[in-house]
Simulated scan of single mutants.
Amino acid sequence: MFSDADAAALYDLLNPWNPELSPGDRFYDELVMAAASVLDVGCGTGAMLAYAREHGHAGRLTGLDPDPASLARARRRTDIEWVEGAAADAGWAAEFDLAIMTGHAFQCLVIDEDLSASLAAVHAALRPGGRFVFETRHPQARAWEGWNPSNEHHVVDASGRSLRVWHEVDSVVGDVVTFTGTTARPDGTVLRLDRSILRFLDAHALDAFLAGAGFETEARYGDWHRGAVTATSREIVTVARRAR
């Protein structure tokens, strides 16, 4: 069928890391390159840290992710520290200048207790004054309304297979959206189904969770060019600083 390793490789095809072309990737790359020590929470296949190392980052780079298949791809690069585990499992104490969550990974923290525990662990991993930077989809943009088969992707994977990939929303309950991703052959034969759950928090709710974990919100942007959050913003980009 379509293995976890296949899925990890497909993710890289659908989501290539390229700061030269992507404003979001460039936003994070500038932060990473300016920090002596970086923790990438939810690092996935490690593309962001690998790019930084390839482009001259000489400091400590550490990636944390719970998915073994994604980490197997990341670990092809041996000059970066890779750790298997969830954000709440992070056991570092005041070791990093910068922590980052990209790819809307923050939205995977659905339950209050998991979110609070994850923020507490990231807070502990940062040195005093260290920053935690992440983005979430702004709930006002209702991004999930575009997750349907009419917006499917067509891609040829590394083994030469032609694939169709699409998403369908199963439910929207409060600020939680559940959806299914389908990977199929061109004729529609389903190879894999992946069910995901994301939480869409507004800026006020984000700030409350951050404050509870000992962070101060240093900056808030509505786009990757550091524009203000407005009534039409699709993103909430947050720069939080360890306050205590």
Results as ranks from 00 to 15, higher is better:
Met1Gln: 12
Asp6Thr: 05
Asp6Leu: 05
Asp12Cys: 08
Asp12His: 05
Leu14Tyr: 13
Asn15Leu: 13
Trp17Ala: 03
Pro19Glu: 03
Glu20Asp: 14
Ser22Glu: 08
Gly24Val: 03
Asp25Glu: 10
Arg26Phe: 05
Glu30Cys: 03
Glu30Gln: 12
Val32Phe: 05
Val32Gln: 08
Met33Pro: 12
Ala35Asp: 01
Ala35Phe: 05
Ala35His: 02
Ala36Val: 04
Ser37Arg: 00
Val38Arg: 09
Val41Ile: 12
Gly42Thr: 01
Cys43Ser: 14
Cys43Trp: 09
Gly46Asn: 08
Gly46Asp: 03
Ala47Cys: 01
Leu49Asn: 09
Ala50His: 02
Arg53Lys: 14
Glu54Leu: 01
His55Phe: 11
Gly56Ile: 07
His57Glu: 08
Arg60His: 08
Arg60Ser: 13
Asp65Met: 03
Pro66Gln: 08
Asp67Asn: 13
Pro68Asn: 06
Arg77Cys: 09
Glu81Gly: 00
Gly85Tyr: 10
Gly91Leu: 06
Ala93Val: 15
Glu95Val: 11
Phe96Asn: 02
Asp97Gly: 15
Leu98His: 02
Leu98Asn: 01
Leu98Lys: 00
Met101Gln: 11
Thr102Ile: 03
Gly103Asp: 09
Gln107Cys: 09
Leu109Asn: 04
Leu109Lys: 03
Leu109Val: 08
Asp112Pro: 00
Ala117Asp: 13
Ala117Glu: 09
Ser118His: 08
Val122Met: 04
Leu126Ile: 05
Arg127Asp: 03
Gly129Ile: 01
Phe132Val: 00
Arg137Glu: 13
Arg137Lys: 06
Pro139Gly: 04
Pro139Phe: 13
Gln140Tyr: 07
Trp144Lys: 00
Gly146Phe: 03
Pro149Met: 09
Pro149Phe: 05
Asn151Asp: 13
His153Arg: 10
Val155Met: 06
Val156His: 00
Val156Glu: 11
Asp157Glu: 07
Ser159Arg: 12
Ser162Lys: 14
Leu163Arg: 04
Arg164Pro: 06
Trp166Leu: 01
Glu168Cys: 02
Val169Leu: 07
Ser171Phe: 07
Val173His: 10
Phe179Cys: 06
Thr180Lys: 00
Thr182His: 12
Thr182Trp: 14
Val190Phe: 08
Arg192Asp: 15
Leu193Asp: 13
Asp194Thr: 10
Arg195Cys: 01
Ser196Ala: 02
Ser196Met: 12
Leu198Arg: 14
Phe200Asp: 05
Asp202Tyr: 04
Ala203Met: 10
Leu206Thr: 12
Ala208Arg: 02
Leu210Ser: 08
Leu210Ala: 02
Ala211Trp: 12
Gly212Leu: 11
Ala213Pro: 10
Gly214Arg: 04
Phe215Leu: 02
Glu216Tyr: 00
Thr217Val: 14
Tyr221Lys: 10
Trp224Glu: 07
Trp224Ser: 04
Trp224Ala: 02
Trp224His: 04
Arg226Trp: 00
Ala228Pro: 15
Val229Leu: 14
Thr230Ile: 10
Ala231Gly: 13
Ala231Arg: 08
Thr232Gly: 07
Arg234Trp: 15
Glu235Pro: 09
Ile236His: 11
Arg242Asp: 03
